[in-house]
Design a protein around this nucleic acid. Structure first.
Lengths: 204, 204
DNA sequence: CAACCTATTTATAAAGT
DNA sequence: TACTTTATAAATAGGTT
């Protein structure tokens, strides 16, 4: 959204990339906060910049959400039974390749596309048209689905959430960590603030 | 955004809340995917619906991001030293306090929370095969929805990301969790697909 | 560089089918 | 119930300060 439409592919210009990263990350956190408040949901967002900086949003707190997720993850069965769906979807995926191939050609006609080398350029000779049809539909649907004041909102998010940047370089790690019960406050980091935007031109 | 502006506060109407939750979650995942692709970032998003269902997005995978985050979290010091909260942010925070007071009062007036029992709270213990059937039907339907513009981005997101819904009820939790090394694949959950969208009143 | 502009693109609240 | 359409609110790409 903006003055000009951009393709969803990696931004080349370093500077633009930095600006976009900052803006979009902020926007992402805001959206997450809105979702939480509007729907009474709870969410956590973790973002690693290309420069390995970590940015985190959480409501009511990132650690709470992650812990909950991990706990659930490790102690319960997934909703969808294992191999069955996997196989089905995988087949759909393969079927999709052909569809995508078709799509790519269509788009090439329209205008300058990327220079190629995408995963969907994979061979599709073995696929049934019917299957391709199906998966295209699947993708279409997914695209659709997946497809007051800013300040007030932001403030609420800040108050009830954690938005902190962790950026200690990996090299400095030590092994004294505690997994659960790690406490941001213990590090002197107040909850509810986002230190994480902007680029310093070093870590990123 | 929409026909009418809405306040960022918990949606009262159950139905609207459901719709909004679905839309916003989808939008959130999409934004996260865009951020990853545009900026070469990596991100994970975990969302718990009010009904405790978990929806996850991850690029390249949620578990990878979370694991990375936890390691970093527990083994390093935060980059930003304690009290160095930017003055600006702190000021905003204080301002927000006042606003929140007002907001709370307004919300109290309105009152009326959900009585629980959202569609996404539907029990899933017994789904098994039946569920598979639904999923299959779901994919079939997708096909018919074929619009004509599957953005490359969406496909990239799909193939390189994880968007899965976990819905095992919290009551089944036990305390034997393993923090690291949990493996989505081990549960038969393929990366790159979102089973969790759509509302049929049963599965989604 | 961090904020601040807007022209446009996106997202989405409601209403429609 | 599910999907589509439409009007509007939001987000944001590229500039400007």
């Amino acid at each position: 959204m903006g003055r000009q439409k951009i393709q969803i592919k990696k931004i080349e210009k370093k500077n633009s990339l930095e600006v976009t990263f900052s803006k979009c990350r902020t926007g992402l956190f805001k959206k997450a906060g809105e979702l939480c408040i509007l729907c009474g949901a709870e969410a956590a967002v973790i973002v690693f910049s290309p420069g390995r900086r970590a940015f985190v949003f959480g409501h009511p707190s990132a650690d709470a959400i992650i812990d909950r997720f991990l706990h659930r993850e490790t102690n319960s069965r997934a909703l969808v039974p294992a191999g069955q769906v996997h196989g089905y979807v995988q087949r759909q995926y393969l079927e999709a390749l052909g569809r995508l191939e078709v799509k790519r050609e269509q788009e090439e006609t329209v205008g300058g596309d990327e220079e190629g080398g995408f995963w969907w350029d994979a061979p599709i000779e073995n696929m049934g048209l019917n299957e391709l049809e199906q998966f295209r539909g699947f993708l279409e649907k997914l695209r659709k689905k997946v497809a007051d004041r800013v300040e007030e909102m932001t403030m609420i998010m800040m108050m009830e959430s954690v938005m902190v940047e962790y950026a200690a370089p990996p090299q400095e790690y030590n092994s004294s960590g505690v997994l659960h019960g790690y406490d941001l406050a213990a590090h002197g980091i107040p909850h509810g603030f986002d230190f994480g935007f902007g680029f310093d031109g070093h870590l990123f």
